[in-house]
Design a protein around this nucleic acid. Structure first.
Lengths: 213, 213
DNA sequence: CTGTCGATGATCGAGTTCCGTTCGGTGACG
DNA sequence: CGTCACCGAACGGAACTCGATCATCGACAG
């Protein structure tokens, strides 16, 4: 049990490509298609993304898009999933680099990872917002719920946190963090620094008052 | 200045019907169309709502839908706006009935109103989630931002709250409340009672630690 | 080791279907 | 009888399909 288990624990969904690619170039194609989709979302928004735009920007044909994704929404879902994976990867990297000894420290790593995602990944903020409902195909419950379980195990194991309702409290803390970070990126494209700082403060305060090590 | 000013303060947008109805039956039609849209959203989600579904369920023809709304997204925007209006109305009713003397009391009224909206209005949860991004046409910034301003004025005026950063803190509190209530309705269709109670506690705790009367 | 060959994966894009939107005609109100 | 409300066939464009074509790779002979 280590920080790295966060990834395997939170990633239960397999992915929603139509046919698993066999040749190497396919994986690149899928990546290129998702990059294109991400850029298109950042430009025109989720609602106005067309499969033709994605294909053209990726230098592929319409048919290729539909070879890998069953429909338009699946492209968005896959974008969402890849973003989630990257967020987890960044989180684990941060955790292993910082080796935090408090829950606040752990959340700082997660918040940093999330902020970086919003900064580097075009369209991530849009996707994050529509996640649950506009994309009901994304299975496995809320993002926060998927992270809360494995995170609780890690906290108990690594930091010796004892709390009979830890999963629930983590879920709440993650939901709050997510909402406030998105808020920071709605009010400013590069993320409102004061709002990000406020996120850390609020989450820290919540965890401090309810979770004890 | 009274609780009732919350409505006029937060509702700056005028509405997006194409032609203001002249005859009485028109208003009923619009209501019926929005009811139908709400039901469709609850059933198939925002992405898969088609104008034909809305028309059929409202017992109207396609043409009638387009007589009142310029396009598909406008139907969703109008749904969102009507929901927001109803939320404000309920909030003011609750506030006038309870005459709260603390900020916590005020937020209890707002939370009650929000919970009731999620319970009674099919599709409200979906619309609430996609608010900002999937419907960029909804002007005036975040819901929380639109409420925070007028609410701050009321709190200062009615309860004598003094806080130089009140608007910002209210925005945060409203964002948290919104996210946690939506969370409660994602995990259970009728709203998870424990999660709703947790929402009250978290928001109360945040306001208590940061806003002083 | 190299070149050929067949099988299967990958790509393409014209064609089909479905959905958003328009518009001219018909009925209802006042 | 003029205006308002309503309808639904028709249009355009976007989602999605499918058979044809090209690329890759292992097998096998020379």
């Amino acid at each position: 049990m280590s920080f790295n288990d966060l990834i395997s624990g939170a990633l239960t969904t397999t992915g929603q490509v139509r046919n698993e690619p066999v040749q190497a170039r396919s994986s690149e194609r899928i990546g290129a298609l998702l990059d294109a989709a991400s850029a298109v979302v950042a430009e025109v928004g989720i609602e106005r993304l067309t499969t033709a735009m994605v294909a053209e920007r990726a230098g592929a044909s319409i048919g290729t898009v539909y070879r890998y994704f069953p429909d338009r929404i699946a492209v968005l879902s896959a974008m969402s999933l890849r973003g989630f994976e990257r967020f987890l990867r960044k989180s684990v990297d941060n955790l292993e680099a910082a080796s935090p000894s408090t829950i606040d420290g752990v959340f700082d790593c997660l918040i940093d990872a999330s902020v970086e995602m919003h900064r580097t990944e075009p369209g991530y903020t849009s996707i994050r917002l529509s996640d649950q409902i506009a994309l009901p195909e994304v299975e496995g419950g809320t993002t926060s719920a998927r992270v809360a379980g494995p995170l609780a195990a890690i906290l108990t194991d690594e930091l010796g946190v004892v709390d009979d309702d830890l999963v629930n409290r983590l879920d709440i803390a993650l939901t709050i963090a997510d909402a406030l970070i998105v808020r920071a990126f709605i009010s400013a494209p590069r993320g409102d620094e004061a709002a990000i700082a406020a996120t850390r403060a609020v989450v820290g305060s919540y965890l401090g008052s309810s979770v004890h090590a």
